[in-house]
């Protein structure tokens, strides 16, 4: 399966962006905590949080991109995504992390640290995906 590709940078990672949680609370993107995602998913009827462990990070043919391989969920299903190196993922208990945190911070002003193999990222799946 070819990796999923995200070629554009969404605006909501910009520092100061207002994010609405599932309970209606508004928070700035840089203030989000692990619990915010977990609690939002708990009240969602169709989405659930999965733990996605970074298993491998490699360069893409295009140097602007990286290919990240995750082990998703309790069955550790292998999923690869190709993303811009500055694309941030939220790591459990740690916060925003990307392959190139300097670029993420430069582009979005978003505090960000280096995404590493072994990091456990927050991801979503459908509750009824079986």
């Amino acid at each position: 399966t070819p990796p999923a590709t995200s070629s554009s940078l969404p605006p909501y990672f910009m520092k100061g962006s207002i994010i609405q949680l599932a309970n209606g609370e508004l928070k700035k993107v840089e203030d989000l905590k692990t619990e915010d995602f977990i609690q939002s998913a708990e009240v969602s009827s169709d989405l659930k949080i999965d733990s996605s462990t970074v298993e491998r990070i490699e360069g893409s043919q295009n140097p602007s991109f990286a290919i990240i391989q995750f082990a998703v969920g309790e069955h550790r299903a292998q999923v690869s995504v190709e993303v811009l190196v500055e694309y941030p993922f939220f790591v459990f208990g740690q916060g925003w992390s990307s392959c190139c945190p300097e670029q993420t911070t430069q582009l979005f002003n978003l505090p960000c640290i280096k995404l590493s193999v072994g990091d456990v990222c927050i991801s979503l799946t459908l509750k009824n995906l079986k």
Partner: peptide, 25 residues
């Protein structure tokens, strides 16, 4: 008078990647 400008509000799940393993069964 200054008109208040609407600030975009994004939904929380937009920020989380949807990593669904392909279901073959």
């Amino acid at each position: 008078n200054v008109e208040p400008r609407s600030v975009p509000v994004f939904h929380w799940h937009s920020l989380v990647p949807f990593l669904a393993p392909s279901q073959s069964e």
